[in-house]
């Protein structure tokens, strides 16, 4: 078995007395699209914020290419090729499309002007990236506040995918979007997969997951309830797992670990083997 791109092992996180995550493990291969589903407060966002360097876990470790990787800050995560498309897009409304795409990673001029940002080069690249995504092009000098929700989503995706991302996390990518824009987001996810980029999609819309993902992982109360290959499940089964908070196939197997959990454990063991 090949080493997974990213593996999270036994991640736990508490905020004061509130336990947000208990012993959560998951692994994702390059070019795989994983849907992360669960009710509100299931721990999806906390788990992804740990992966994107916003929170540090209380316990557990994160392996990148089979090697332990500290993700103490968002810059660490971005440096490791982990990008996040936030639900609210995390764009600065007053700044231009280009400035937002390069925020935190500005290109600088050379020589004596090495402290100055290179506006011309950034403008050119931003235009190229947005066109490459096949998303509707807002002029890159437009302030983000003057663009539509779909365009802002495009900017956020362009920012997440421009810098050789290896894993892109999308938090509710289709919330607040019109139908045509949703199609474009799904197409963008497909394009990422074909380029070997792993994608984690957090969504309330089961049809998003069924449409785009290879695999779905269900969280409830901060723990993994179960997981399914998409071709092996149906929407109502996932909804049942989200609501009931347990895997119906566990009961069928007569207690103990169900298929899904067993498969996950196997995957973890394979990933931990020395290369």
């Amino acid at each position: 078995m090949t080493v997974p791109l990213i593996e999270m092992r036994n991640i736990s996180k508490s905020f004061g007395a509130v336990v947000a995550l208990r012993q959560v493990s998951l692994s994702i291969a390059a070019g795989e699209v994983v849907g992360l589903v669960g009710d509100n407060a299931a721990g999806k966002s906390t788990l992804m914020k740990i992966l994107s360097g916003v929170y540090t876990p209380d316990a557990g470790e994160i392996m990148l290419d089979g090697r332990a990787q500290a993700l103490a800050t968002p810059m660490d995560a971005r440096g490791a090729g982990i990008e996040m498309v936030y639900q609210d897009f995390a764009l600065v409304p007053e700044l231009s499309v280009t400035q937002n795409i390069f925020l935190g990673r500005e290109l600088l001029q050379g020589g004596l002007r090495s402290k100055f940002v290179d506006k011309a080069k950034m403008r050119e690249r931003a235009t190229h990236w947005i066109e490459r995504l096949g998303l509707r092009v807002p002029p890159v000098d437009t302030p983000v506040r003057a663009t539509s929700g779909g365009q802002q989503q495009a900017v956020a995706i362009a920012r997440a995918t421009a810098f050789d991302a290896r894993l892109v996390i999308m938090d509710e990518p289709t919330a607040n979007l019109a139908a045509a824009a949703i199609e474009k987001v799904r197409a963008a996810i497909g394009r990422l997969r074909s380029h070997g980029v792993a994608v984690i999609v957090i969504s309330h819309r089961i049809e998003d997951i069924l449409e785009t993902a290879d695999r779905a992982i269900v969280l409830k109360h901060g723990a993994v309830v179960g997981e399914r290959r998409i071709e092996d499940t149906r929407g109502d089964e996932l909804v049942h797992m989200i609501v009931a908070g347990r895997d119906p196939r566990d009961a069928a197997a007569g207690g103990g670990d169900g298929d899904g959990a067993g498969a996950a454990a196997d995957g973890g063991a394979g990933g931990s083997a020395p290369p």
């Binding site: 994107s52 968002p74 936030y86 609210d88 897009f89 995390a90 600065v92 700044l95 400035q99 935190g104």
Partner: peptide, 19 residues
């Protein structure tokens, strides 16, 4: 200069981008 504007424009976005 850019980061000053970003912090004032939307602090959360600036923080998420590692500023």
């Amino acid at each position: 200069g850019l980061y000053s504007l970003a912090v004032g424009g939307r602090e959360e976005a600036a923080r998420a981008m590692g500023i």
